[in-house]
Structures are given as C-alpha cells and as structure tokens.
Amino acid sequence: MTVQLATLGALLVLTAAIGLWWSARQGAVRAPARGAAAEGGLDWAEYGVALGSRTTFVQFSAEVCAPCRATARVLGELASAHPGVTHRELDVDENLGLVRELSVLRTPTVLVLDPSGREVARLSGAVSRTQAREALAAGERGAPAPHGVPEPGVANHTVTNNERRA
C-alpha cells in the first residue's frame, strides 16, 4: 500500500507540473518556426487564404478541438474590428501537407502573417483576447514577438533584418 500511495503522490505531482506548463503555454506569442512560411516562399492563395493589407491570421483547426472554436471567435472579432486584418481557418485534415511543411504539431496553431504572407509569429493553444492583440502587435512590427524564443537558425534566413525589440 505504501508503494501505491507513493505512486499516486508522484502522479499528482506530475499532473500538476504538466498542468502548469501547459497552461503557461496556451496562446503565448512565439517566434515563427523555420520553414517556407517564415521565408515567405508560400503561395497562400493556393490554400484559399486571401492576405490582409496589414495582418493575416491563419488558424489550423481540427474537428476534435474545443479550444479551436473559442480561438476562431476571438480572432474573428479582432479581424472584423480592424480593417486590413483577416482571419482564415484551415482544417488540418484537409491540409496535411501544409501542416507538415509548416511544422504544425497541435490545434489550434495560429500563424501571424505580414502583408507579403511571411510568417512573423505563431501561437498555439487557446488564444485569449489579450494574446490576440499581442499577436496583432507582433504582426504589425513584422518581427518575432518580444517574449518569443527564436529557434536555432532563425537568424540565418530572411528575417535577419528584423531585430527583436528590447
């Protein structure tokens, strides 16, 4: 019984640790992932995405994803309140090739695109209104978000001139 109690205690600690880590990551604005979108080499029109004149949010969603609905609502509201900002939802099952190419690992994942279609930031998990506004600001700057941790190699591609702001 002692062993079982210790096991259950360890499981509770593990659960709390995962819960805290996951909650902190929800909707955090991060630097773009390496790939075609960050280098601006992607033809978004091919996927039915019409780019906004300021910022475009491309949201990858799945049918079995409850936070996708809430995120779509938040981003939809933001887009309709700001001219030049558009929001487009893509289903991961219908765009698996793109999902692989862009290293999308979970739903919802939101790519923040500049007017040329280049990825300037990304968020994953449920996005709050505050985080959506942060993402919009990051999109307007055209640079990785201040809290974002650039992946190794990010400095090597075309975003080099966009220094992170202090």
Partner: peptide, 28 residues
C-alpha cells in the same frame, strides 16, 4: 483525466494532430 478535470486539457485532442501526421496524407 485529472488534467482534463483540473485545467481543461484534453490530452487526446492534443495528440490528435500528431497521430494524424503519422498517417499518409489523403489530400493536400
């Protein structure tokens, strides 16, 4: 189950896309 109850994290849903990516693409 505890994560789902406590913070609303659905582990199965998080894994959905990872599992889906392992299968060959049917379209796109």
């Amino acid at each position: 189950a505890a994560l789902n109850a406590a913070v609303g994290l659905c582990l199965g849903c998080e894994m959905y896309l990872l599992l889906r990516r392992l299968r060959p693409a049917s379209a796109g």
